[in-house]
Computed example of a mutant assay.
Amino acid sequence: MLKSKLSAWFAIWMALLTVAFYRWPHMHMLWWGAIGLSSTVGVVVGVLVHRPNRRWPWLLLAAALACFGLGDFLYNVLTDVLGLENPFPSFPDGLYLAMYPLVAAGLLQAVARRISGELCPTDTVARLGGDEFAALIEADSMADLELAAGRIVIALAEPFAVAGETVNGTSSVGLSTTVDAGSAEELMRQADLALYVAKGAGKE
């Protein structure tokens, strides 16, 4: 009941701010700042109320929203209050730039969560670098391994919601087994090779 009430009140509050933004455009600094702050608070409150298993993706998104909202507010202060004409570089520009790695980090955390959600608790997922992940999966056969890889590909094909926008992506998987490699280094090398072959062939 509490979750439903909070969601309803938040939707009404954001709708009122949007109406005020267009109804009284001469006060856009106030309304835009309130929208940015409310978005950040909404994400943080959502994390506290819903208690997701992984909070970091949402908290990173909240930090990104805070950077964007504060950057816009300060930019409006510089241009509308202080009368500066398109100041660059400026402190707001630094806040804008800080937003992108925060969003990327949150998205990568969400990707890792989706991969883990398709595997067993005994399996291990780790990010190798950039947007590449590795998973150590216990499987009885190659067929079971391929089924696990298929589940991951399907999960990652679902769009991500980031700051009110939909982010779509595709994934490719390279498989290797201990039958093909006698060491961890060889196992990774075989998987890496299979991944590049799949990418080159346009396969998922």
Rank of each mutant, 00 (worst) to 15 (best):
V49A: 12
A112S: 09
M1H: 08
S38L: 02
L60S: 07
M188R: 00
G33M: 01
S4G: 11
L74Y: 09
G150K: 04
E118W: 04
L95T: 05
R114D: 01
A135P: 06
N53A: 14
L147S: 00
L65F: 10
E146S: 10
S116L: 15
A143P: 05
I137H: 10
G182Q: 05
A143E: 14
V49Y: 14
V167D: 06
G46N: 14
E132D: 09
A139Y: 14
H50P: 02
A64E: 05
R23N: 05
V125L: 07
M188F: 14
V19P: 01
A98F: 03
L16A: 10
M188C: 06
L193K: 08
A201T: 00
A201M: 12
A64F: 05
K203C: 04
A98M: 00
A148P: 06
P89A: 05
M14L: 15
F10D: 07
G164E: 04
L108A: 04
A163P: 00
F133Q: 02
R151F: 12
D93F: 14
V43A: 07
V197Y: 11
P121D: 09
P87Q: 05
G94K: 07
E118T: 10
L2Y: 04
L102I: 10
A66I: 01
W32Y: 03
R51W: 05
G200Y: 03
A139M: 12
T124W: 12
S4I: 13
L61R: 03
G169R: 15
A98V: 03
L2F: 07
A134T: 15
H26G: 05
G46P: 13
V44G: 05
G71E: 03
V19N: 00
G130E: 03
R113I: 09
K5E: 14
A194K: 06
L97M: 06
I137N: 02
Y100I: 12
V103N: 03
L136R: 08
S176H: 06
V47N: 02
A139Q: 10
E204R: 14
I115K: 08
T40K: 02
L82C: 09
A98C: 04
W31C: 03
Q190S: 01
L17D: 05
H50M: 14
K199E: 09
A201Y: 04
L74E: 07
L145V: 12
S176F: 09
A155K: 08
F73D: 02
L119D: 01
C120D: 11
E85A: 12
F133V: 03
F91W: 08
I137L: 15
V19D: 00
G150V: 04
V162H: 07
E138R: 13
L61M: 13
L59A: 09
F73K: 01
G117K: 06
D93N: 11
R114M: 03
